[in-house]
Design a protein around this nucleic acid. Structure first.
Lengths: 191, 191
DNA sequence: TTGGTTGTCGAATAAATATTCGCCTACCTT
DNA sequence: AAGGTAGGCGAATATTTATTCGACAACCAA
């Protein structure tokens, strides 16, 4: 944890890390490159992070928190489950579309084999409210009864892959296509 | 391309590469480790592959071919689109479940930023028959009309993420849960 | 203004890893 | 069996990259 250095510099480091990890993979992430991209000296990196591992873990945690905030925005709450689900789905899809580096970073790191069990547990705990929402909907007979882990994975996996294709191929969603994508997601879980 | 050395040794190298990439990420893949895991000397690695990049690209290509073979097994063809789709979906899901290393390897490499455009194009071309199948179904009004790229991404993304969760958490699909997963997939694309 | 304190820099060093290469072994061929 | 050849080995070397550290700059307090 940085003691309280220059917040702006910290943000620059995180942004640079995100960008570089996506461009070159974790393998390609060189501390010197991050420093150059962030506009600071190599040695300065070690003032903020004691090593590369800590840097990556911190970026991961920060990004996960941001995602949780997007998902659990109180404005998404509605009277019906379907409407709440739709607002959350659209918010998350929009987040991924606008900041695919963050989505990719989180995904790549989670399955890279480099992440610690503790960090996994810590970040998963942030999403328990989502589990509860889904379980409630299942009990009300609104959505299919599968393990919530599986339901979440299905929805999230579909969003991620669609966004990846859109990003990689610079595809532009045409009129009404976003709505169709949501219908696919809803069609998959509704009874 | 290996000229025609010991085929068995080649397979051992590929298996070892797959396993190690999943365990440690591309960053963690050390030629010396691959050699040890494959039961050969470090230097021998260079008889088969001139460098690490070539090794990874070859494993990727080999795996993609295997996936295409699973998907396009003639036994999957049926009179109805839904049945053909179901057989292909089940075959691919089963493949991923039984050999998650291959699924993960392919996915990680594709979005690692390390893959060349040529290799992407070469492997994508293998899956054109799938595009045609989907387009035909769209024209017959059987499935939603979205870009086939998006439809494929949606279905594949969902499968991958579900398999990842199952694998990582050592979750076991309970009675009828596989069928439910298929229903989710079908529910997402059907009109 | 000056002495001190904090933050920064990047060349120098240490560590990790890829790659080479001379030697060795096993197996042919006559 | 003797000589020859192909394939294999892994310690030695080259390269890449992380990390340290002594010198410098900016700022501040007295």
């Amino acid at each position: 944890m940085p003691k309280l250095k220059d917040e702006q510099k910290l943000a620059a480091i995180q942004t640079a890390t995100l960008r570089l990890v996506i461009r070159t993979g974790f393998s390609g992430l060189k501390i010197a490159d991050v420093a150059r991209e962030a506009g600071i000296g190599t040695g300065t990196m070690y003032v903020y992070y004691s090593d590369k591992e800590q840097l990556i873990e911190d970026v991961y945690l920060t990004t996960k928190k941001e995602i949780a905030a997007v998902l659990f925005d109180p404005a998404h709450l509605s009277d019906t489950f379907q409407e709440t689900f739709k607002r959350m789905w659209l918010a998350y899809f929009g987040f991924c579309l606008q900041q695919p580096e963050k989505m990719l970073f989180v995904e790549q790191f989670l399955y890279s084999g480099l992440i610690s069990e503790d960090l996994i547990a810590e970040t998963e705990a942030m999403f328990i409210p989502l589990d509860n929402l889904l379980i409630q909907a299942q009990e009300q007979g609104l959505i299919k009864k599968v393990s919530v882990e599986i339901a979440k994975a299905f929805i999230q996996g579909a969003i991620h892959e669609v966004v990846k294709v859109i990003t990689k191929k610079e595809y532009r969603l045409i009129q009404g296509e976003l709505e169709k994508c949501f219908e696919m997601a809803w069609g998959s879980i509704k009874i």
